[in-house]
């Protein structure tokens, strides 16, 4: 009967059974188990982390390569294209919400918990009993002055340069996109390299800033709520830029080996969406973390 029928390949794309997802999970769990035992001083050695990491990279490579080959092989119709568009949009939305939690924490600290610790409104007793003499100010490492005095990184210094770098990278990426749509492959590739270079420059400056903060400013993760929000927000953003840069690089290499067509290149567009998202998060960071 219909039991062994197969969905019409012109209509649907139904991939063959695959061991990639299972292996990816094994890799993830090896890493997380290794990290957990490390954090709890039950160190079982770095092997699970390295082995898991290697497997993770390998599987991701295989999986994405497989998808690229399927795409180039013409297995994806209009429906798959829409599937990827919707999926990427939802995925970016989930990322927005993840950052939202940390932006929310920053807002809460600055507008609620710190004023309360300082005795605002009905919280006068909190201040008098628990933290007498603490005055609400920003930046702060809290009433206990955790980790001692520190300095912050001024917004209109390297962070501003970084803003310009990321904004420019958004422009170069758009040029690349237009060139791709116009069928000008060499131009596309050049603009893509420019984008990758700008991403790397951003990461380089960001790393410098971190070293400066730790080495010269005594601004650390341990520096109270300022240090916590500063490093967690910029740190997660930095991780996303790293990932984004790798994705841009992969797309560039794919362009160089002839992938994508002027009218069909969602791999490119998905990465571009992601890059713009990372860009927008940075604008938010620049305003509320560095500037205000």
């Amino acid at each position: 009967m219909a039991d062994h029928a197969t969905p019409n390949p012109d209509r649907y794309f139904v991939p063959a059974p695959s061991a990639w997802p299972f292996a990816l999970t094994v890799a993830l769990v090896a890493i997380l188990g290794g990290v957990s035992s490390y954090l709890e001083d039950k160190h079982i050695g770095p092997l699970p982390i390295y082995a898991g990491g290697a497997l993770l990279v390998y599987i991701l490579f295989r999986w994405f390569r497989g998808v690229a080959l399927e795409s180039e092989g013409g297995f994806y119709g209009a429906q798959v294209d829409r599937t990827y568009r919707w999926s990427m949009a939802w995925f970016i939305f989930s990322e927005v919400m993840f950052f939202g939690a940390f932006f929310g924490a920053l807002y809460y600290a600055r507008h609620l918990s710190l004023p309360w610790l300082g005795g605002e409104g009905s919280k006068i007793e909190t201040n008098l009993q628990l933290w007498p003499g603490f005055e609400n100010a920003w930046p702060t490492n809290g009433p206990a002055k955790l980790n001692g005095d520190f300095d912050t990184i001024p917004a209109f210094d390297v962070p501003f340069v970084n803003t310009l770098l990321l904004l420019t990278s958004g422009v170069t990426l758009t040029f690349a996109h237009h060139a791709l749509k116009a069928g000008k492959r060499t131009q596309t590739i050049l603009w893509m390299w420019a984008t990758v270079a700008l991403g790397c420059a951003f990461l380089f400056l960001q790393a410098e800033e971190y070293m400066h903060a730790y080495g010269d400013l005594n601004l650390k993760l341990a520096s109270g709520i300022y240090g916590s929000t500063f490093f967690m927000l910029t740190g997660f953003h930095g991780m996303h830029v790293t990932l984004g840069t790798i994705m841009l690089l992969v797309i560039t290499l794919r362009l160089m080996s002839g992938h994508f067509k002027p009218d069909s290149h969602f791999g490119f567009e998905g990465v571009a969406w992601y890059w713009h998202f990372v860009d927008v998060v940075w604008i938010g960071l620049f305003i509320v973390v560095y500037w205000l």
Binding site: A109, L130, G142, L146
Partner: peptide, 12 residues
């Protein structure tokens, strides 16, 4: 050593 949820560091 972050202090999101530690009042001593300005968290809550």
């Amino acid at each position: 050593l972050t202090s999101f949820f530690t009042a001593a560091g300005g968290g809550d």
